[in-house]
Amino acid sequence: MHVLVVYESLWGNTEQVARAVADKLGSVGTVDVVDSDAAPITVDGYDLLVVGGPTHAFSMTRAATRAEAVKSQSALHEPARGIREWLNLLGRPSAAIPAIAFDTRVDKPRMPGSAAKAAKHELRSMGFGTTVKQETFRVHGYEGPLLDGELERASAWADEVIAALGLGSRADR
């Protein structure tokens, strides 16, 4: 099992979630964790794709929302290529592989929209298997930190993914 985890992170919260998910998925195979700026534009050779990013303006970020986050919210990092742009560059998979999506979102005020839901829809339209429900992880304010227990929830969600996709552990294989 070879897993690709692609994340976009402005304050580091989404990266933390991506790494927690990757750590758990490491129990079933090799995991490559890369930010959206460095992500390959093919998934050939991978057996599972994980995509995560922050929710901005009710969906995946855009160049303008990332720039605004840096300007008005002092985001630490402004990706040149977010998950939206990366998905637009990504070629269709040569074989049907499963893909899962997650996002990070401010806890209060609760806002509608989801980067994960939008990413899942895009992945499905590209031919990826998207049977596993997307997940949201909450942060305090725009910059975070993550709410208490969110990294543990990310690990538990990865366990649910393993079970839902029938991946089992290395020991089971």
Rank of each mutant, 00 (worst) to 15 (best):
V43F: 11
G45H: 07
A22I: 00
E160K: 05
A18T: 00
L147H: 13
R84Q: 12
H56F: 05
A119H: 00
L123T: 02
Q16N: 08
S72H: 10
D159E: 15
R170H: 11
A171V: 01
G127I: 01
I162P: 09
L123E: 05
I100E: 01
E152G: 14
G45V: 03
N13M: 08
R66F: 03
L10Y: 10
T136K: 09
G168T: 12
F137Y: 08
G113I: 01
D159Y: 06
G141C: 08
T30R: 10
V5H: 09
I100M: 13
G129C: 06
G127P: 12
S27V: 06
F128K: 02
L167G: 12
S155F: 02
E143V: 02
E122I: 01
L49S: 06
V51K: 05
A64N: 13
M1W: 09
L167V: 11
S125C: 03
A119K: 03
P109K: 07
E150S: 00
A163H: 11
R81P: 10
R173L: 03
G53M: 02
Y46P: 08
R62Y: 10
G53D: 10
K108R: 15
W86R: 07
E15D: 13
G168A: 04
A80K: 14
E78K: 07
R153S: 02
F137N: 08
G129E: 12
D37A: 02
K24E: 15
R19F: 03
